[in-house]
């Protein structure tokens, strides 16, 4: 009983484009910050069971660094910027020349810098999306956590939890050079937001 199972191909394409535009701007912002080229993969738009969403970042128990923020406004939703731990350290080194002190723990300064990166990236993702759709979308203050992927991601699935055991997410993976920085942008619009996104872009709601 899920309203999104029957999403038409062209609607999936629209959501893919949403991911493309948002993540494209965010990747450009990241590339400017790090003064390095950042590549991104074509966004994947998928309706996935909760368990599989965790699998896409390496499993429910994989420890990841996540910056989470809630999108407020016309089309509310949840947004995650997920970086693997080694990538986060590399990113810090590139950005502010911080030497990796300890693989396991992060200093106050490192966390603050990462939070700010998340803030900038999410901001550019959302503002480009708001321009594109003419919808009002504002990010809340980002919040950072380093923990098991399952524990973190389940937070973004609560709104879908009321409707079924699957969630639709727009997943964009980005890479720097060979493999130094790897991460994901997840945009999980609330179930009610899809209709608004579709009608803002002039395609029929599901």
């Amino acid at each position: 009983m899920n309203p999104f199972v029957d999403l038409a191909d062209f609607q999936m394409d629209v959501l893919k484009e949403v991911g493309n535009i948002g993540a494209g701007h965010a990747a450009t912002a990241l590339s400017t910050l790090l003064a390095k080229p950042i590549d991104m993969l074509v966004p994947k738009v998928r309706m996935l069971p909760f368990e599989e969403i965790c699998e896409s970042v390496g499993g429910a128990e994989t420890v990841v660094l996540a910056i989470f923020l809630r999108v407020e406004g016309d089309a509310p939703g949840n947004m995650f910027f997920i970086i693997h731990l080694e990538s986060a350290k590399n990113m810090l080194q590139d950005l502010i020349g911080l030497e990796v002190q300890n693989e396991e723990t992060y200093s106050e300064l490192e966390l603050s810098a990462l939070n700010e990166i998340g803030n900038i990236l999410a901001g550019s993702y959302l503002s480009s999306l708001a321009d594109f759709t003419q919808l009002n979308m504002q990010p809340t203050v980002p919040s950072l956590a380093i923990d098991m992927a399952g524990a973190i991601l389940s937070y973004g699935l609560l709104q879908f939890g009321e409707m079924g055991d699957q969630a639709l997410l727009i997943d964009t993976k980005f890479l720097e050079g060979e493999n130094e920085v790897q991460g994901h942008f997840f945009l999980i619009p609330d179930p009610e937001s899809f209709g608004k996104i579709f009608s803002a872009l002039g395609v029929g709601a599901p």
Binding site: E51, A60, E61, G150, A151, L153, S154
Partner: peptide, 23 residues
């Protein structure tokens, strides 16, 4: 035991669930 899942066992076995956050 997956997310939003339950299971039972009798005599032997270990029930396991991973990545509990707000759950």
């Amino acid at each position: 035991v997956g997310m939003a899942d339950l299971n039972v066992a009798h005599h032997t076995g270990v029930l396991k669930t991973t990545g509990l956050g707000s759950c």
